[in-house]
Every structure is written in structure tokens, then in C-alpha cells.
Design a protein around this nucleic acid. Structure first.
Lengths: 192, 192
DNA sequence: ATCTTTGTACTGACCGGTCAGTGCAAAAGC
DNA sequence: GCTTTTGCACTGACCGGTCAGTACAAAGAT
């Protein structure tokens, strides 16, 4: 079998298992079994458990960052911001397991991949920051806005809301959740 | 020694160790040693490692929820909202390792004490929701606001910003971060 | 055309260490 | 005297990582 297909299968299995039980509680044997592959294959392809995890994170964040960038591209700044938020919400809706893995494992202390994990996460937040910066430059947002902090805030807000949505109220419509998020983002919170 | 004093010592030791090396990497032997207690005592008091962590989580969230409630009490709704956000930011700044534990353990789908973790987290978000509801009732926030989703959003936004702050930019002042957060919350984002 | 080599992908039994949890007799504390 | 704690030896499951070996296809070699 082609190497890339095997890696793909291992990624999928690992994402599911880690989202269920956490990285430390997920064994290499489990991942191999779920992927329908021998344990040795994991080591042949990745060398170690943590290397598998690092590759997994990179793979997922690349896709997330690309989705966010695509959503933003070619739109005027404020539209782009809304599009990015929509795209993030949609991405998490579709890749809930990965989102859980991302939020849970980024903030674990210890290990060396944890450093990598943070760097990788910043790639996604970076897209949001870029959009905010563009909006500031276009004069659409206040000039003294701390785009770094604001990007963290927006990203984290959407991530939390999306996961709470899926976990606690999965029947609520995308549009509904999206609308509340937009209202918050636009500062339409206060009474008219 | 009194049981409660022993439990207290074990909580402190466990929190410290988790901050250093993470939850899974922390062994019961380490916790016992750090607490200056025999390993058997851990099992006499808690029965199992996961029961110890569950109790630890509950202990921490009780303190967080109490801090948020105290901050809100006796203030007019909108002031209360800002006070709650300040309190959350401050709490996480002071108990960073606990916040990490909370965020990491809440988002796993399997197991049973993960379920407990979610319930426990909702206790903290519930305080935010209560404040938002009060503000809506007082006519300070738009009547059709989905307070549940908005509470998730606010809580998650602050949590993310606080952890990013501590991890990436620990020298930035509390006031600074706080100000950006407030601007976002009040919808003062758009250019004047 | 047939044999031999080489490289790649994968296998699964196995090893050595780790760690949660146990058992228990003796000592402290209340 | 009942609860709580200690100290320590012990167990047994589990798990990351290894390694000798299989399968097989493409590339020489004769």
C-alpha cells in the first residue's frame, strides 16, 4: 500500500481516539488496530508516538489555516473577518474531533511536542490576526487595536462556542449560532 | 492529622506537579512524596487516582465560580459583567495550571469523570449566563440575546486570551490585556 | 526468459520498564 | 478504642519501542 494512504488512515484513527480519551491515554496499539495496521507500521511511518502526534497536528492545522485563508481571500476587511469566523465555525462543526484534540492538547504542559503544538496553533490564529490587521489598515477598525490579543479572543470565542454547540445543543442550527457570534463580534450586544 | 488537612496537602501537591509535568505524567508516588504523605494515604483518602483528580477539579471550580459570583454581587448588570470578566482573567492569571487542567479535561468525549468535568465547567459558565440574563432583564442588553451561547463565548474568549497571555506574552500588563478584552466586549471594535 | 538482488512497506511477537493499586502490621493521633 | 496514617514489599497489567522476518515489485544480471 502507498505510504500516504497508510499515514492518512493512521491520522484518522489517531484523531478519533485522542479526542475520545486524550493523547496520553491513547495507546499506539489502539491507533494501529483502529487503522487496521500493525503496530510496527506506526513506527515505520513516524518513528515515535509523539512524532505521529506532531505530524497529526500539523496536518490538521494546515487544513484549518487554509480554510480560514480561503474564506478571507478577496473580500473587503470586515467581510473577511465575518467569513473567517464562519469558516472556523464550519470547520469545527465538520472536524469536531480534531478541534477537541487541538484545544485539549495545546494547553497540556510538559513534553516537547507541546512547544510545537503551540507554534502550530498560532498559525491558525495568525490568519485571524492578519485579517484584523488588514481591517485596521483599511480604517475599518480602531487604529489602536491590539490585533494579536483580539485574534486570540476571536479564535477562542468561536472555538468554545462551536464545541459547546456540538456538545450541548447539537440540534441548534448553524445559522442561529452564527448569528449570536456575529452580534457579539459587531458589538451589537447592547440594547438599542 | 485531620483528614481535611491531608486532602488539602494532596490537592496542593497535585496542582503543583500537574503544572510541572502534566496530568498523565504525574504519578501517585510523586504526589504522595511531594505532599509528605505515604502512598497508602492517597488511597485511604480518595480511593483512586482519578477520584483524586475529580475532587481536585471540583475544588478548583468551586473557587472559580465563587470568585466570579463575588465579583458580580451587588453591582448593576453591566458593571457586573465587566467585573466577572476581570475576575476570570485574574483567576486564570493566578491559577494558570488549574485553568489548563480544566480546559484540557473538559473536552474529551469518552470516560465518565470527563462527564463530571463538563458539568463542573458549566457551573462557572452558569455564573456568566446569570449575569447576562440579569442584564437582559434590566434592559441593558438586547432582549433577544441568546444568553447561553453568549456566556460560552465570553467565558471561552477570556480563557483563551488569558492562557495565550500567560504563555506567549507574560510580561504584558494585566491592565493592557484587560482593556483589549473590554473593548471587544463593549463592541468598541469598529472605528469611531 | 529466468534468476538474483535491492528497496520499500509492513508485520506481530516480544522485551523491559513503569505505575496504579494492594496488603498488612505497626504506629500515631483524636 | 476507633480512625487515620505510615512504610514497604509486592503484583500484574499495560505500553512504548524494537527487531527479525515476510511480501512483493522493480531493476539488474546472465
Amino acid at each position: 500500500m502507498a505510504r500516504s494512504a497508510t499515514r492518512e488512515k493512521l491520522f484518522t484513527a489517531a484523531i478519533e481516539l485522542i479526542a475520545e480519551s486524550g493523547l496520553a491515554a491513547t495507546t499506539v496499539d489502539q491507533i494501529a488496530e483502529r487503522a487496521g495496521v500493525a503496530k510496527g507500521t506506526v513506527y515505520y511511518n513516524f518513528g515515535s508516538k509523539s512524532a505521529l502526534f506532531a505530524a497529526l497536528l500539523e496536518y490538521g492545522v494546515d487544513r484549518l489555516a487554509a480554510a480560514l485563508r480561503d474564506a478571507a481571500s478577496g473580500r473587503p476587511p470586515l467581510d473577511a473577518l465575518e467569513a473567517v469566523v464562519s469558516a472556523e465555525l464550519a470547520f469545527i462543526g465538520e472536524h469536531e474531533s480534531f478541534a477537541r484534540l487541538l484545544i485539549a492538547e495545546t494547553w497540556r504542559s510538559g513534553g516537547d511536542w507541546q512547544h510545537t503544538a503551540r507554534l502550530i496553533r498560532e498559525r491558525a490564529i495568525g490568519v485571524v490576526a492578519d485579517v484584523l490587521r488588514a481591517a485596521v489598515e483599511a480604517g475599518d477598525l480602531r487604529a489602536d487595536l491590539d490585533t494579536g490579543t483580539a485574534a486570540s479572543a476571536v479564535f477562542g470565542m468561536v472555538l468554545t462556542v462551536a464545541l459547546d454547540w456540538r456538545a450541548l445543543d447539537p440540534d441548534r442550527s448553524f445559522t442561529d449560532v452564527h448569528a449570536t457570534l456575529m452580534a457579539l463580534l459587531r458589538g451589537r450586544l447592547t440594547a438599542v
